[in-house]
Simulated assay, not measured.
Amino acid sequence: MSYENILLNKEDKISIITINRPESLNALNAKTIQELSAAFDELNSDTNCRAIIITGSGEKSFVAGADIKEFSDFGQDKAEELARTGHNSLFNKIENLSKPVIAAVNGFALGGGLELAMACHIRYASENAKLGLPEVTLGLIPGYGGTQRLPKLIGKGLANEMIFSAKMIPAQRAKEIGLVNEVYPIEDLLLKTKELAKIIAFNSPMAISKAIHAVNLSDTDKGFDTEIKYFGELFELDDKKEGVTAFIEKRKPGF
Rank of each mutant, 00 (worst) to 15 (best):
S2G: 13
Y3N: 11
E4P: 03
L8Q: 00
S15V: 08
I19F: 12
I19Q: 03
L28W: 03
K31F: 09
T32G: 09
L36H: 06
A39K: 01
G58R: 09
E59F: 04
K60I: 13
K60M: 13
V63C: 11
V63E: 08
G65K: 07
G65E: 08
I68F: 15
E70A: 10
F71M: 14
F71H: 10
F74G: 07
F74V: 05
Q76F: 11
D77M: 02
E80I: 13
L82E: 05
A83K: 01
R84L: 07
K93D: 11
K93H: 14
N96A: 09
V101G: 05
I102E: 07
G107C: 07
G111K: 00
L114F: 05
E115I: 05
M118S: 11
C120P: 04
I122F: 15
Y124I: 15
A125Q: 13
E127H: 10
L131A: 07
L133S: 00
P134S: 03
E135W: 10
L138W: 13
L138H: 11
G139T: 15
G139C: 14
P142G: 09
G143L: 08
G146D: 11
G146K: 12
R149V: 10
L150H: 06
I154Y: 08
I163C: 02
P170T: 01
E176N: 15
I177C: 07
L179A: 08
V183I: 04
Y184P: 04
P185S: 10
L189D: 06
L190F: 02
L191D: 12
A197I: 04
K198A: 11
A201K: 03
P205C: 11
P205F: 03
S209H: 06
D219H: 04
T220M: 09
D221K: 15
G223W: 11
E227S: 12
E227T: 00
K229T: 05
Y230S: 08
L237Q: 15
D239W: 01
K241V: 04
E242P: 05
V244N: 01
T245G: 12
K250N: 14
P253G: 09
P253Q: 11
F255I: 07
F255N: 03
